[in-house]
Structure formats: C-alpha cells, structure tokens
C-alpha cells in the first residue's frame, strides 16, 4: 500500500478546502466592504489576493510532484486532474472578489445609486455554492453536485434582474452611468463565480464517475 502517497493526497485535499475557504472569505469580505463603503478593507482584500494565488501555485506544484513521482492512475489520477482544474476556478473566483473590492474603491467618493439588496443576495448564494460544492467534493456526492448547478440558475436570474434595473436607472439618469457600470461589473463577477462553481461540480462528477460532462443538471 502506498501510504505516503495516500497521505499526500489527503494533505492536498485539505489544502484545496483551505483555498476554497480563503476564496469564500474573500467574496464575503468584498461584499461587506461594498455595503459598508470600507475603502481600507477593500485595499486589504486586493492585497490579500496574492495569498490565494500563492496557494494555487503551491497546490499545483504538489500535483506536478505527485504526477512525476507517483504515476497516479484511476481514482488517484482523476483526483489530481480534478484538483488542478478546481484550483484554477478558485483562483479566478479570488480575482472576482478582488474586482469587487476595486469597485468599492472606485465608488467610495460617489453617492450610491440605489440601496444594495440584490448584489449582497447574489454574494450570499455564490458563497453558499462554494461551500456546498466543496462539501460535495469531500463526500464524493454526485447528486449534490448536480443540485448545486440549479442554484447557478438562481444566480443568473438575479443578475439579469440587476442588469435590467441598472439599465433603466442609467436611461433615466445618464449621470449614473459610471456608478451603475461599476455595480454591473460587480454583479457580473458574482454571476461568473456561479459559473466557476458549476465547473467544480463537473469535476466532482468526473472524479467520481470518470465522465466529462457539461450542463450536468440536465444529465
């Protein structure tokens, strides 16, 4: 039995969950900073993104090392491939959180165009999706992975609602165009997080079944 290899895989999985936690926290912090118009916190979030990036490279290096030294096959091979793919998605989610933090800084000296209700709601769903997807990964739960992608539809619906609302505000008052565009940018970032979680769910299905599928809710 390859005990050392199995230990290393467990450690890798733990690192992956830690990275996912870092990303979920970054998204949460960025939305809190937006609600509280906290520029200081937004700057910190942007600075902290480096830790997520470093974590991604650290995990990637570990995967490369295991490929080179252990020649993984079957479930082990699929897990390493899944991890490599998932860390790319997580790293991009970190960038989306950083993007929202940038919007916080850009909007800091401008009056709000509307009360923030739907964007925090989107963030709530996105964060929940991240947590649920990693739980499905840990439990190798294909059915849960499929269910999570249904939440992405909810996120898409909210985004379109925000889009329509902001467009009508811009039409009514063109002086709000810059501020509304920044808010659209934030909503779009949250919508993209949902897409990235869907990618993770596809990788969970690959990890468990060996099947590479898209639009998994429809399968």
């Amino acid at each position: 039995m390859r005990i050392a290899f199995q230990k290393h895989l467990k450690k890798l999985e733990k690192d992956l969950f830690n990275m996912a936690k870092m990303v979920a926290i970054a998204v949460d912090r960025s939305i809190t900073a937006m609600k509280e118009r906290d520029v200081h916190e937004a700057k910190k979030i942007r600075k902290d993104d480096i830790h997520i990036n470093n974590k991604r490279f650290d995990i990637e290096e570990q995967c490369i090392h295991l490929f080179a030294t252990q020649q993984p096959v079957a479930g082990d091979l699929r897990e390493l491939i899944a991890i490599l793919s998932i860390i790319t998605d997580l790293e991009r989610m970190g960038d989306y959180a950083e993007g929202i933090a940038k919007v916080v800084i850009l909007l800091a000296d401008k009056p709000p165009v509307k009360p923030l209700i739907d964007i925090p709601r989107m963030a709530e769903i996105a964060i929940d999706m991240i947590h649920r997807s990693l739980r499905a990964y840990a439990e190798r739960d294909v059915e849960a992975a499929r269910q999570i992608t249904l939440q992405d539809d909810e996120l898409d619906e909210l985004y379109h609602q925000i889009f329509r609302e902001l467009v009508s505000i811009m039409i009514e008052n063109p002086r709000t165009i810059t501020r509304c565009t920044y808010l659209l940018w934030s909503a779009h970032n949250l919508e993209r997080i949902g897409d990235r979680v869907t990618n993770i769910c596809e990788r969970i299905i690959f990890l468990v079944t060996g099947e590479l599928v898209e639009n998994i809710a429809k399968h």
């Binding site: 039995m1 390859r2 290899f5 993984p72 096959v73 079957a74 479930g75």
Partner: peptide, 9 residues
C-alpha cells in the same frame, strides 16, 4: 482493480 492499480493492496 482500482485498489490494485492505485497500490492500495
């Protein structure tokens, strides 16, 4: 098969 080729036994 999985257990054998992944070195679990």
């Amino acid at each position: 098969t999985e257990e054998y080729i992944t070195g679990r036994f």
